[in-house]
Design a protein around this nucleic acid. Structure first.
Lengths: 236, 236
DNA sequence: CACGCCCTCACTATTTCTGGGGAGTTTAAA
DNA sequence: TTTAAACTCCCCAGAAATAGTGAGGGCGTG
């Protein structure tokens, strides 16, 4: 039995969001690393995280709003494939002081993070940290990268499944004309332009926008377009 | 040597976007299926695709704007994990007639599609189609799912690398206040409300919105928010 | 066949947004 | 240290969006 299958089994055994916490602990022990952490941000700003970091570090992280400083977050948000922390940009002063503080809290000297993206703008990170030499860490990554990618994928799938209600609960159905209208607005067309492209009067177009706004529970046109985009109802 | 490693080698050998086309053909022959297709849609509506579908079908697809009808696209846009086409919603009339037409063009009776998401709202699909029984197809998926997930990932990584300029060139950097402003607008706040929440005057807020609009190359506020969202610069 | 939903068009008044200006302070990077 | 960028505030005129209401024809389901 390969490591991969063991890990997938651990994950599929989980029956609640809280159990994912235990899975991270099992993964940590299994791979013999300092920490294993999984956390996400979805389209409406809700957050969830689990992992083996100390609560002190997590609290400090939240308190100091390190989400907007952490080069791991910033770097992974812009890239597709997994990243060894050594490859990130630690040149800014804020980043270096953050790194030092993280080290003080026992995060470890090495890190490896896999960005995972789901529907509706969901963005999650699966991270492993350890204390070892650069060479050892590079070898660890080389050896386990593929397995970890699949584990991260399964982890996110599981987390999404638990939160299914949160995501799918309020996804209204827009009519074809309403979708066209929202799409054109998302593309930057004014009402007049959009009406022209749809070959209807601007009055009619406004009816669609209003209808879409109400269905989407939006405060204004911008909000409606943003929600339609975030919900994956339209594509620019 | 496993299938997986063969496939990864095929991919890493590719040195230009056009060569990905040949990789899809190799993959098709390797797995002995009807078609292998990879295509993406990015945040500003640019599209790229390669694969073994006939040009007739691709032309017809584009001409008829099937992008907005195809249940594979719609379904995958809402889900995270790979999907057997049999699991999708083919109940609408438009979907059924689309399926029939696709079948006439030799797409195949079975399909398996892996959604892949990258930074800046990039969304790609990696698809395999075949003509066989439901049971055979389910078994094929069961056997190759993990490998294919890694292949799809590598495929997208390669495609992204080739298009690096396209994506990174058009990803402006918004300042923290500009990001806050766009985020609040995406959440449906009016300018007055957003200014209030940011504890600044509405005049100042407007400066941020204008700056963000110019950086994003947007025609109006709605467009700017839509682009910021699609580019993954902000999260609602 | 009725019912609901979609598509189309119209009017009015009020509120909000847009697109130009200019100008000073603070912060961070080179 | 210098320099660029970010942050903050202000004015004005015109364009656009919003919130109501109303009304008629079409299409598909039960």
């Amino acid at each position: 039995m390969t490591k991969l299958e063991d890990m997938q089994d651990l994950l599929t055994q989980a029956t609640a969001l809280e159990e994912l916490q235990r899975v991270t602990e099992n993964l940590r022990d299994y791979y013999g690393v300092n920490h294993v952490v999984y956390h996400w941000v979805n389209s409406v700003g809700e957050r969830f995280g689990c992992g083996t970091y100390t609560t002190e570090w997590v609290d400090r992280y939240v308190e100091k709003d390190y989400l907007h400083i952490d080069p791991v977050i910033i770097g992974c948000f812009q890239r597709f494939d997994p990243v060894n922390w050594k490859q990130l940009d630690w040149s800014s002063k804020a980043a270096r002081s953050f790194l030092k503080e993280a080290s003080d809290y026992g995060v470890g000297s090495q890190g490896f993070t896999i960005p995972v993206r789901g529907p509706n703008g969901q963005f999650a990170l699966f991270t492993m940290t350890n204390t070892c030499s650069d060479e050892e860490w590079a070898e660890f990554i080389e050896t386990n990268q593929r397995d970890l990618l699949l584990v991260a994928h399964t982890f996110n799938k599981k987390a999404l499944a638990f939160e299914e209600g949160v995501f799918n609960a309020s996804t209204p159905q827009l009519s074809p004309r309403e979708l066209s209208a929202m799409t054109l607005l998302a593309k930057g067309r004014s009402r007049a332009q959009a009406a022209d492209e749809m070959s209807i009067s601007e009055h009619t177009l406004r009816v669609y926008i209003e209808a879409a706004r109400h269905k989407l529970g939006a405060m204004n046109t911008t909000h409606a377009v943003a929600r339609a985009l975030a919900m994956g109802l339209i594509v620019m």
